[in-house]
Simulated assay, not measured.
Amino acid sequence: MSHIKKFAVIGNPIEQSRSPELHQAFAKKENISLTYDKIYAEKSEFKSMVYDFFTHHGVGMNVTVPFKEDAFALCDVLSDRAQAAKAVNTLWSKDGLIYGDNTDGQGLVDAIHALGWPLAHAKILILGAGGATRGVVLPLAQAGATQIVIANRTYARAAQLVCDLKALITPSTILTACPIDQISGQYDLVINATSASLSGDTLTLPKDLQFNYAYEMAYGKASSFLTHAQQRGIAYSDGFGMLVGQAIVSFEIWNGCKPKLTDFLDLK
């Protein structure tokens, strides 16, 4: 049985996780034998459960809410993406060390590419300045975005995020902050990284804001942001592709092969 690779996702709550279903689907496509379990953990148990998993021959572990920052603190070696995000959703062990990456941003980039939307030379507006935004700025810059504006209700938070991330991205991407009630102008892509769709709040966008594509990071919930885009005839997508995309990047890190994202969008 040693040829069957052991994986898991850890979180609290954990029942809602689609990760086992996604990774089993990838494994079937790539002809890899694996098990993928859900692990429920209390805050106080997180660290010991991660160590226990790898001690007992676990190959890779995904990390979901609320443990991504804890995972970041636990790692011995961090990828550039994880350092930019200050959060880790993908763990693996090598030579007694625990490695961490954040695949959320690359998952978003891959999902947008799968839609056929351009990112090279794009002008992008991101709504919200929380952890979700922090995790995607570096991969969007690496994908060739020339301008990224972070808009947030609390301007100071957006400005701080810009300050934190500026040193990590190349000078060819201009990164700036803006109060959310002052956004205007023309953008190629607007990404909603606020919790509005999760909380059921209405996100109001100014009429003079022009954009070609709308991406909602959340999925499976009603979204005033996507309704706005739909009413204006703007191309839009929810975040299911990003969910699949980030899982594929984790799978690739662990197994050395990358399934095609568009093969799995029907799992929605």
Rank of each mutant, 00 (worst) to 15 (best):
183 I>N: 03
266 D>K: 03
3 H>K: 14
191 I>T: 07
111 A>F: 01
149 V>C: 06
103 T>E: 08
113 H>K: 13
138 L>R: 09
50 V>C: 11
228 H>P: 06
195 S>T: 15
81 R>D: 06
96 G>H: 14
50 V>E: 08
25 A>S: 15
247 A>W: 04
92 W>E: 07
179 P>G: 02
43 K>C: 09
218 A>N: 00
14 I>D: 03
266 D>N: 12
152 N>Y: 11
264 F>N: 11
13 P>A: 01
97 L>A: 10
154 T>C: 04
101 D>M: 03
70 D>R: 02
240 F>E: 03
202 T>L: 12
143 A>K: 06
206 P>D: 03
156 A>E: 15
176 T>I: 06
245 G>A: 06
125 L>R: 03
243 L>S: 12
16 Q>L: 15
149 V>S: 07
88 V>T: 15
175 L>G: 00
133 T>I: 03
106 Q>D: 14
137 V>K: 04
159 A>I: 05
99 Y>P: 03
147 Q>N: 06
259 P>T: 09
202 T>V: 12
254 W>H: 10
252 E>M: 14
211 F>I: 01
226 L>T: 02
69 E>W: 11
175 L>P: 00
64 T>I: 12
52 D>Y: 07
215 Y>N: 06
53 F>Y: 14
43 K>E: 14
112 I>W: 02
93 S>V: 15
182 Q>H: 07
145 A>C: 12
239 G>L: 08
153 R>N: 02
134 R>D: 04
7 F>W: 09
112 I>H: 02
136 V>H: 00
20 P>Q: 07
9 V>K: 04
216 E>V: 15
197 S>R: 05
205 L>H: 03
135 G>N: 06
127 L>W: 06
263 D>F: 09
103 T>L: 14
201 D>M: 14
266 D>E: 11
204 T>I: 15
2 S>H: 12
199 S>R: 08
183 I>H: 00
249 V>I: 09
3 H>P: 05
120 A>P: 00
117 W>F: 13
218 A>M: 04
125 L>I: 15
39 I>M: 11
226 L>A: 01
128 G>W: 00
9 V>T: 12
265 L>I: 03
132 A>F: 02
82 A>F: 00
70 D>I: 05
148 I>G: 01
54 F>E: 10
105 G>F: 00
28 K>V: 13
183 I>L: 05
74 L>G: 05
62 N>W: 06
250 S>A: 13
51 Y>P: 02
224 S>N: 14
124 I>P: 09
115 L>T: 05
115 L>F: 01
221 K>L: 06
179 P>I: 02
11 G>I: 02
232 R>H: 03
17 S>C: 10
59 V>H: 10
84 A>S: 14
58 G>P: 12
176 T>A: 02
188 D>M: 09
215 Y>D: 06
131 G>D: 13
49 M>S: 15
221 K>P: 11
184 S>L: 04
162 V>T: 11
7 F>E: 08
239 G>W: 01
2 S>Y: 14
152 N>S: 00
217 M>I: 05
214 A>E: 04
180 I>V: 08
